[in-house]
Design a protein around this nucleic acid. Structure first.
Lengths: 315, 315
DNA sequence: TTGAAAGCGATACCAG
DNA sequence: CTGGTATCGCTTTCAA
């Protein structure tokens, strides 16, 4: 089923069929009707391949994330898809998770989209730069700027400081930061924010998921901390299930499980993160904007019970 | 950057460039080397559009799900992406969530992939049939067969019966099934499985997410049930937070939060669901298989504390 | 308003 | 082993 068959059925040229389908050029009402009828009868769907080739665009953009098992990226992707679809673009996803060929897969993906979003822990800056160099617009989520691509992040330092102050208010002195600041700018900023208030903060390395948090329990205990600030909710949850709540703990993100676990955490607008990224990307693709944007979304401290009995009233 | 420029740089024809890139036809070592050098120097990436048009395939397939906010679909998509990528195909996602134009978006998507997976609550069977009629291979996840497309589901009836028996063992007599069996074959099967053991089961309509569960609390209380079997974990969790655990509750799926909430539930291999779907689809796309498959994955009852104090030992 | 024809970027068949 | 060229399905001048 091609445009030729439709043209033949409607007794017009393929040019005319194309015109009524795109609707940008005037076509006589009668002809248009005949074409539309033919399209309907033949259940014709234009080929994206042919169209894309002629228009030199894909009408699709991608997003690269490390994993989708935690709630964080699921929300980000959801927000992204939601806006992209609304903007009429298909969305391609790529999980870099542990794949040694991530870089190649990314370059491969870049060749079939009009724009690309990269999350943290997916590929290095060099790869991002390479993609950007091909002219493909790029937006970075929660990672430092590279070249002059757009970035969108959430506020970390201030809320981390606020969280630290809250813990200090509890009377805690010796506190551990559980997470790997070197592998995520988000974590690095949170660590800095905390250290601003608690200079003696003790960093303990850790992965990003529940299991990592669970397995870090031993290392954490060794520090005999009054409280533990975890890099994210999953790690906090994992640690909690290992310590059975014997140590005050805080997380970050406010995922669904956090509420049920009574986890004190910092809520960040994950869905909005993806949504804004999609918008920024679109502005670049359509050329509506030239200068790079670096947006920062607000976050909010959510105090629950995991940080211990509250010495004073707070929200 | 096209194949022509590479050809010129290597002083060969585009046909030769194509040959060394695809590697299916013999090319003299010397020529191949020159071409490869040119490709590297020019940082050439073949256009997927051009290639796809010539090969009449997209090297991509899609998956349509209702939403991504809950853990269920995130896991399914993760499993799907994982296998699809491994098979060398890009993956396009489409969330039908509440969009009135879902059907059009699906037909649109179908036109740019080699195969498509549909989850429940996305589009009706008619649309599925229409896509299948275009010759695009289709796989259905957790929904009844349509035409002769492949399907992959998880076991519901038996585990539901098992769950019901467990509740009976607790001494509960009056039990409510919270969920809308009409809108999901999974839910319908679970309801049937329960009813097989508890004929007097009382159905109470409800949505699919936490909020729905929360808001259903009133309607549930009115039934003064000894226990409530929820259609999934999210609803169970929502209900729990509204009833503060005053009523024994069970869920389904075993999402992360279920563990922290001590929710008795039935675990199903969500990731595997997506992974198998990707494999089934690939078999159809490559034509490796002709007859339709209808796979059923096993599930497992997970007893925790939400169903009340245990009268006898169980796992 | 409409048609003819030149691409868009690859693949693959047909000769040589 | 290599080059020329028709083709894939569609958009878009250029003329009529």
């Amino acid at each position: 089923m091609t445009i030729y068959e439709v043209a033949e059925r409607a007794s017009v040229s393929i040019a005319t069929v194309s015109r009524v389908l795109r609707g940008n050029v005037p076509v006589s009402p009668g002809t248009a009707a005949r074409v539309r009828a033919a399209v309907a009868e033949l259940r014709y769907r234009p080929s994206h391949l042919g169209r894309g080739l002629a228009e030199r665009q894909h009408a699709a953009n991608g997003i690269v994330f490390p994993d989708l098992s935690g709630p964080y990226y699921a929300e980000v992707v959801l927000g992204y898809e939601s806006v992209a679809a609304e903007l009429g673009r298909s969305v391609l996803i790529l999980s870099s998770h542990g794949r040694p060929t991530a870089r190649d897969m990314v370059m491969e993906l870049a060749a079939r989209v009009d724009g690309l979003v990269f999350c943290t822990r997916t590929v290095d800056d060099e790869t991002v730069r390479e993609v950007a160099a091909t002219g493909t617009p790029v937006v970075l989520i929660a990672r430092p700027p590279v070249a002059d691509v757009d970035t969108i992040t959430t506020e970390n330092r201030d809320s981390a400081a606020l969280l630290a102050e809250h813990l200090l208010g509890h009377g805690y002195r010796r506190v551990v930061f559980l997470g790997d600041a070197d592998r995520s700018s988000d974590f690095a900023e949170r660590f800095e924010g905390v250290r601003q208030i608690i200079p003696a903060i003790v960093p303990v390395a850790c992965g990003f998921d529940e299991n990592s948090g669970f397995r870090a329990a031993e290392a954490v205990r060794r520090q005999r901390p009054d409280a533990v600030i975890c890099c994210n909710d999953e790690v906090a949850l994992g640690l909690t299930s290992a310590t059975a709540g014997s140590v005050p703990v805080t997380g970050w993100d406010d995922v669904m499980a956090a509420r049920y676990a009574g986890l004190t955490t910092v809520r960040q607008p994950m869905r909005e993160l993806g949504a804004r990224a999609a918008r920024l990307l679109d502005e670049r693709i359509t050329g509506a904007r030239g200068e790079p944007h670096h947006d920062v979304l607000p976050t909010r401290l959510i105090v629950r019970s995991s940080c211990g009995p509250h010495p004073k009233e707070e929200t």
